[in-house]
Nucleic acid binder design. Sequence first.
DNA 1: AGCCAGGTGTACA
DNA 2: TGTACACATGGC
Length: 298
Amino acid sequence: MESMQQWTIPLPNNYRFKESLNFLGRNDQECLHRIHHGHLYKLLTCDQALFLIKIFEEKKELKIDCLNNTPNGHQWQFIVEYVADWLDLTTDLGKFYQFAEKDPVLAPLVGSYFGLGLMGIPELFEALSWAIIGQQINLAFAYKLKRRWVENFGTKLMFDNQAYYLLPTPQQSAVIPDEALKQWQFSRQKIKYLKEIARLLSEGVLSKKSLQELQPAEIEKRLTRIKGVGTWTAHYVMMKCLRIPTAFPIQDVGLHQALKVCLSLDQKPAIDDIRQWEQRWEPWQAYACFYLWRSLIR
DNA sequence: AGCCAGGTGTACA
DNA sequence: TGTACACATGGC
């Protein structure tokens, strides 16, 4: 038990790991995980130690190898919980599919992406910072900014001639000079927002745990009190990090684009029309949004 | 070249 | 409560 190098997780009903890989592999500029030959690699940290894990499917089960280290029982627990959260291994997708069956937008999407869980961002700082980086710029540029931030200021592990990274911690981020980020083409606003959030998290004023004790409406209020966090970002974080299935970032332009395509419209739907869909999708708004995002890939 | 990009804060009626 | 505009730069 104490010296295990591999862990096995049963795959949930209706879940297809291949769909997780399809989504996670959507951008080749991604720097916080790597996909290679159907294997998913990610660097994690627990108890000040680094763990490079490899996740793959074998005999209808999910296997987690730790490549660089030997986690103890407590560390394995952390790793397994992280993976289950990240890859959405605890949701009963069958319930969503039952709901989606009679919906004209969702039914075809479920047909195309059957077995896809909602890929999450378990770390609050990562969810918030990725949302802020992505605000109002195209995704390609957002990935570029994130890569610069992670590669210059995060933690690096070389393994088998390949670099793996950890996002800078809030503590590390709080002391990055503004000019350094400015040089890497972060806007003044993004720098200010990111560093303030880093400060709130490192001082413990804000935490995932404290948010999880609140109701969704209260979480939204708490998050939008932070400068740089509007309703889009709050809902993005509720959806990807806090895993609130009713979260729905209604201003999202990708969502608008996907709906336009799914409904064969000439132009993007009006916000009031989207609001109707949102109500119709209660209590699965986050999954509806995620499947719509998925439909934009490629 | 010009519009758009996984928005938000601020100003002002 | 509602609209206009700055931010700030890349992608296509």
